[in-house]
């Protein structure tokens, strides 16, 4: 297939599936809390709505960063789609993208001049400790498979069986990472916690918010895609979809049932999980 068509198709799928997954997550959370909940396509509707809303650019914002940061957010996740589903490139690159995502959160928060955004920005720095499980997962997978290419990781799993059975603790760390990056009342996501309104998105109104929401949907799809690919190997599109729905419902349940932790507790939880994951995985790798 034409490469550009491939990329466009994958980006569109990522956006649509990610949006609907958000809807499913909110539905699950609502049903657990005995509410009817919004329709499943709510995220999609919101995105459309924000694009035709009146947009104002705050007088206090740091231009042009305030606008360009939304473009960068979209660009890095398009890059992730290229590295992931399109070319199955190096895993290390995906983790560089996660790192830049952190920086985008940081700068989107601080460039608006809003105190809520600023708090989110400081928290983004604080939660850099959450990158620890990320790199640990990376190194553990590398130690197990001897490669960082997604295509060869998939090939390895076709030969030796899914990695989730050999590296369950690494999978647990990755799930903690997904929860820490999940939207809608995540216990670990301190940059978007509700005590600072909408975190770094607070001062991005109108079409800029709509743009951010498109990138968010792609982000969510890619997080789940990477998890499924790294720990389950090659799946058919239908299996990917089923896996994503199950994971989203699981994380929706976790988010609905847990309190939102404060920054210190959130960071300590992640470091503890990382410690258990790293030590446990290495012990399992050498002695079992």
């Amino acid at each position: 297939m034409n490469l550009m068509a491939d990329i466009l198709l994958n980006v569109t799928i990522a956006f649509l599936v990610g949006s609907v997954l958000f809807g499913i997550q909110r539905k699950v959370m609502a049903r657990i809390q005995l509410r009817p909940g919004p329709p499943i396509i709510q995220h999609l509707l919101h995105t459309m709505k924000f694009f035709i809303k009146e947009t104002v650019f705050p007088k206090t914002a740091a231009m042009p960063f305030y606008v360009v940061i939304t473009v960068i957010l979209c660009a890095i996740w398009v890059a992730a789609v290229i590295v992931g589903p399109v070319t199955q490139g190096p895993l290390l690159l995906l983790f560089a993208i996660f790192a830049i995502h952190k920086i985008v959160e940081h700068n989107a928060g601080s460039s608006s001049g809003s105190p809520y955004g600023k708090l989110s920005c400081v928290r983004a720095v604080f939660s850099a400790a959450a990158e620890l499980p990320l790199f640990a997962v990376l190194i553990i997978i590398f130690l197990q498979t001897g490669t960082m290419q997604l295509s060869t990781i998939v090939a390895y799993q076709a030969e030796h069986g899914a990695l989730i059975f050999t590296l369950p603790l690494a999978a647990m760390m990755f799930i903690a990472l997904i929860i820490s990056k999940s939207y809608y009342y995540s216990p670990l996501n301190i940059t978007l916690a509700k005590d600072i309104v909408s975190g770094f998105e607070t001062e991005h109104f109108g079409m800029l918010r709509g743009f951010i929401m498109i990138s968010e949907a792609i982000t969510w799809y890619m997080l789940l895609w990477v998890f499924l690919t790294v720990f389950f190997g090659a799946l058919s599109p239908l299996m990917y979809l089923i896996g994503m729905v199950i994971l989203t419902a699981l994380i929706g349940a976790v988010n609905a049932l847990t309190p939102i932790l404060n920054p210190n507790h959130s960071v300590m939880t992640e470091i503890t999980l990382a410690f258990i994951g790293i030590v446990g995985s290495i012990i399992m790798m050498f002695y079992i």
């Binding site: 466009l8 979209c74 743009f211 498109i214």
Partner: peptide, 9 residues
């Protein structure tokens, strides 16, 4: 691709 979406907005 990002610029296209931005300009749509």
């Amino acid at each position: 691709i990002p610029l296209f979406i931005l300009s749509l907005g």
